[in-house]
């Protein structure tokens, strides 16, 4: 009976370990290379929800994918934006950089205007201005 119990426990442990190493290349606290802080993200949608913020007039442009990597000691971000409407859309975006204490690591960036053709995708990218920036938010605003 004891042996059966041990086997069941070992199987459960192996299963749990298997699940935990599914994304073995990912560091803890990161998703798709992007820092998560204390938050949890188990999918791309979760990551996008955590990182994208709407400011001012809401836009229908959606961030669909986001990937991060380190260039030297700076954080590099690629974010895919999608315009699934049948009209050209104009938006503005900027990144907000956050330090280890959750405070602003850099001054506010300039709003960057962006034109998106109908039914199109566009990848925007950014590099953190300082190695003090360990987290970020992508801010989107409609310019219609």
């Amino acid at each position: 009976m004891n042996r059966t119990g041990t086997i069941v426990a070992l199987l459960a442990a192996a299963l749990a370990a298997g699940c935990a190493t599914k994304k073995g290349f990912e560091k803890p606290g990161f998703a798709y290379g992007c820092p998560l802080g204390d938050a949890k993200a188990s999918s791309m949608d979760d990551l996008v929800r955590l990182k994208v913020v709407s400011e001012g007039k809401r836009t229908t442009i959606l961030a669909t994918e986001m990937r991060c990597t380190m260039t030297g000691d700076l954080l590099r971000i690629d974010a895919n934006l999608n315009n699934d409407s049948s009209r050209v859309k104009r938006i503005a975006y900027k990144f907000r950089w956050i330090d280890r204490e959750g405070m602003r690591a850099w001054e506010e960036e300039v709003w960057k205007p962006l034109l998106m053709y109908e039914s199109s995708n566009l990848t925007i990218n950014a590099v953190s201005p300082t190695n003090k920036a360990v987290d970020f938010r992508l801010l989107l605003m409609s310019q219609e």
Partner: peptide
């Protein structure tokens, strides 16, 4: 925009 873009690129 020019200053920001150039600075971030040069940092790499």
């Amino acid at each position: 925009m020019i200053a920001e873009s150039m600075t971030r690129s040069m940092l790499q």
